[in-house]
Amino acid sequence: MDLPIVVGVDGSEPSLHAVDWAADEAAWRGAPLRLVHASLWERYEGAALAQDLEKPSEQVTAEDIVRTAAQRARLRQTGIKISTDVTPEEPEYALVREGRNAAAAVLGTRGRSGLVEMLLGSVSLTVAARADCPVIVVRGSDDDKTGAGTHGRVVVGVGDTGPDSAALRFAIQEARLRGATLDAVRAWRCPAHETTDHPTLAGEPARLHEQQAAGILEKALEDTPAEVELSRRTVEGPARRVLLAASREADLLVVGARRNPRQLGLQLGRVAHAVLHHCACAVAVVPERV
């Protein structure tokens, strides 16, 4: 059975952009699309969906939300199989559970209860830090180009897990599905205690660290399929800063997040946390088992 692409919907503009992305993802993969609305609130609080339905905000129901989202998905991608679910529980719990049997979960940056100026909603952050499947957090746009591949680039941050990296495998798959270039980036830094004031030796530690980064990158990419157009880059600097800069000309940024089943709480990592809040494009957080 094909695992579905799960998308959380609540009627907000960010969640509708997530529906667009998820519909494209389902069509590219030939996978079913599952729309999930989970909330303990009985009343919708938002203007955009209410206007579309020509109803007062307080009369918009959960069934209206998922029905409108399903219609939007069908208009965007005809022929995909769509299922819906409405459940009266906290959305982060429902979406983490749905992610146990999903190819990926897709969310907007924030839901209808979030402040306009928030960088990332608590639901998206919690699901990205706990889900068993890759979680894609979509940045919305007003020009209906969400998920359209305007840059033709998928960026992946290459860590120390090598070719066994789940994040790298996911990025390769996304690049192949989109016909996009895979931009593999390895950040490196020269520790301060290894620098020297001697003019003939000043560049030696940095050169060695750069060579080491290039070797790690080459090793990780050795099994990349030939049909995937590949770009390799080693960049000096903190990984967060390097990846955020790369995201400005990308359609998707893929990062890994190490997960230890023996540990409780959010397991996201500083790099994933930073790019989720500040990235210029959609972010996929892929669990890496330790």
Results as ranks from 00 to 15, higher is better:
Leu266His: 15
Arg233Met: 04
Glu222Lys: 14
Leu201Phe: 13
Ala128Asn: 10
Thr78Tyr: 09
Asn101Tyr: 12
Gly11Leu: 09
His278Ala: 06
Ala202Lys: 14
Val156Trp: 05
Val6Trp: 07
Ala105Leu: 15
Pro56Ser: 01
Cys281Tyr: 03
Asp64Pro: 04
Thr161Tyr: 11
Ala245Pro: 10
Glu288Ser: 03
Ala274Trp: 09
Pro261Phe: 13
Leu276Tyr: 05
Ala202Gly: 01
Cys190Phe: 06
Gly147Met: 07
Lys219Arg: 14
Arg248His: 12
Ala202Thr: 13
Val96Ile: 13
Val254Arg: 01
Arg34Thr: 07
Glu63Gln: 12
Val36Tyr: 04
Ala23Lys: 08
Ser231Val: 13
Val255Leu: 07
Ala284Glu: 05
Ser83Arg: 13
Ala220Arg: 02
Leu253Ile: 03
Ala50Gly: 01
Val86Ala: 10
Gln77Tyr: 10
Leu107Asn: 01
Val255Thr: 08
Glu98Phe: 00
Pro205Met: 05
Gln59Ile: 00
Arg74Met: 14
Val96Thr: 14
Pro14Leu: 07
Ala226Lys: 12
Ala257Met: 07
Met1Ile: 14
Ala23Val: 09
Gly159Ser: 10
Val283Cys: 05
Lys55Cys: 00
Ala202Asn: 09
Ala171Val: 01
Asp160Tyr: 05
Ala27Thr: 10
Leu75Glu: 13
Gly269Lys: 05
Ala184Lys: 09
Arg139Lys: 10
Asp142Gly: 15
Arg233Gly: 04
Pro261Met: 12
Met1Arg: 14
Gly256Pro: 00
Ser231Tyr: 14
Leu120Phe: 08
Gly147Ser: 03
Thr234Asp: 04
Ala226Glu: 13
Leu252Asn: 04
His209Phe: 15
Leu276Ala: 03
Ala18Glu: 13
Val154Ala: 02
Ala239Glu: 08
Gln267Ser: 14
Glu288Phe: 04
Val155Lys: 12
Gly30Tyr: 06
Ala280Gln: 14
Ala280Ser: 12
Val60Trp: 06
Asp132Ser: 10
Ala257Asp: 08
Gly159Thr: 07
His198Asn: 10
Gln71Val: 04
Gly152Pro: 05
Gly157Trp: 03
Leu49Tyr: 14
Lys81Phe: 06
Leu16Tyr: 13
Gln211Glu: 12
Leu243Tyr: 08
Arg130Lys: 08
Pro191His: 09
Ala206Ile: 00
Asp10Ile: 14
Glu288Ile: 13
Val242Leu: 06
His273Ser: 11
Ala220Cys: 11
Val275Tyr: 02
Asp160His: 09
Ser141Thr: 15
Ile172Glu: 00
